[in-house]
């Protein structure tokens, strides 16, 4: 127990970094997802193909490859970025691809007849998005969004491989010093589990509140 207390500051630091990265990635991913899904749904052909290629590429390469590519690649092109930024950028691109598909699916699941009715009372595109599409799509998108958030928290551990001191790296450093691998891996597991399990429960509760129609 005293060993855990000794490692606590580093663990908390790692936890904070993991939380920051996860939030930043989710934000970036959600914004990219909104643009991506609108492009896939309503964009001109060229735009739709570009987003399609972006989504399909992200679905076919490992997260770690993009993290390394950006982390080592940007300096080679002359752009010095801190490792944490490279990590957020890479994971954000993946998240954006994922979100584009989720948002697109949510909108497409709204019956087409409602679009006809909304158009026929004279609502503009923006009004249809605001009053008809968004409220209904939200309830359908939320579970998938929360699942993606959980995946992001897990993927954030990969930034430890480019030497960012997140929770996983913090635990590795403590294990390196104290050799108490089992204890601290268990601590890390419990922390990750606590975060993700809470996310899932919150998601399920929100889904129940928003889930009508």
């Amino acid at each position: 127990m005293p060993m855990i207390l000794a490692g606590l500051p580093l663990i908390l630091h790692g936890l904070l970094v993991t939380a920051t990265i996860s939030l930043a990635v989710l934000l970036l991913g959600t914004v990219l997802g909104i643009f991506g899904s609108l492009s896939l749904l309503y964009g001109a052909n060229v735009l739709r193909w570009c987003v399609r290629i972006y989504v399909d590429v992200c679905r076919s390469i490992p997260h770690l490859v993009l993290i390394f590519a950006i982390f080592y690649g940007l300096p080679a092109l002359g752009l010095q970025v801190p490792a944490i930024v490279a990590g957020i950028l890479a994971l954000g691109l993946f998240c954006g691809a994922h979100m584009s598909e989720i948002f697109r699916g949510g909108v497409e699941s709204i019956p087409h007849g409602q679009m006809d009715a909304a158009k026929s009372i004279g609502l503009t595109f923006a009004q249809r998005l605001r009053h008809i599409i968004f409220p209904q799509a939200l309830g359908r998108i939320l579970p998938a969004w929360v699942n993606t958030a959980v995946e992001i928290v897990k993927s954030s551990s990969l930034v430890s491989l480019v030497s960012v001191v997140d929770l996983t790296m913090a635990i590795q450093q403590i294990v390196g010093r104290t050799r108490e691998a089992l204890l601290f891996y268990a601590v890390a597991a419990m922390l990750y589990f606590a975060i993700n399990f809470t996310l899932s429960i919150t998601g399920r509760r929100l889904e129940r509140k928003l889930g009508h129609g």
Binding site: Q114, S120, G122, T124
Partner: peptide, 24 residues
Amino acid sequence: SDAAIARMRADVGMVFQSFNLFPH
């Protein structure tokens, strides 16, 4: 334009076979 078409549609009412009420 989308806005002009919307304005025209506001003056033409339509009732559909499948009602198409907004469920939310």
